[in-house]
Amino acid sequence: MHFTRRDIGRLGIGAAAMAALGATPAAAMTDETRAAIMDFTGGVEPGAGDIMLNTPEIAENGSTVPVDVTCDGARRIMLVADGNPNPGVATFEFGRLCPSRSAATRIRLAATQDVIAVAEMEDGRFIMVANTVKVTIGGCGG
C-alpha cells in the first residue's frame, strides 16, 4: 500500500473525528482530566445539575484568572483546567458553618481551554459544569 502526503492528512482527520465521537457527551476532555475527575468521584460519571461556575470569557493574562463557583448543597467542589500540564487546580471542602457553598480564587491557565467544576453533593451525587476561557497571553488579541 502506498500513502501519498494527502492520504496521510486524510487519515489524520479521520482519526481526529473518531476520537471526537468516542468522547463523552459532557465535554471533550483529555485523559488526564478524565482521570482526575474519576479519581474525585470514585468512578461515577458526573451529571448535569445546579452548579454555577463564573469565569471570564476572555482572560488577558493567563497567570491570574479569577474564577468563582457556587453549588448549593455541595460537600466538596473540585476545579479542573483541561488544558494545563496538570489538570488539577484545587479542591474545596465546606464545613457546617459555610452557608452558601461557594468559593472564589484565582487560577493559572496555560492556554485557551475548558475550566471544569465538579461538585459532590450532600446526597452523594456528582454534578459538573464546564466553561471555556479564552486566554490571550501578551495581549496579542484573539
Binding site: P99, A103, I107
Partner: peptide, 23 residues
C-alpha cells in the same frame, strides 16, 4: 471547627487568594 478547606495544586495563581462565606 473547619469551615473551609482547600487542597491546592500548582494551577492556583501566585499570591493565592480565596474568599468564602461563613455564618
Amino acid at each position: 471547627e473547619v469551615v473551609f478547606d482547600a487542597a491546592i495544586e500548582p494551577a492556583v495563581s501566585a499570591n493565592p487568594y480565596f474568599s468564602f462565606a461563613m455564618v
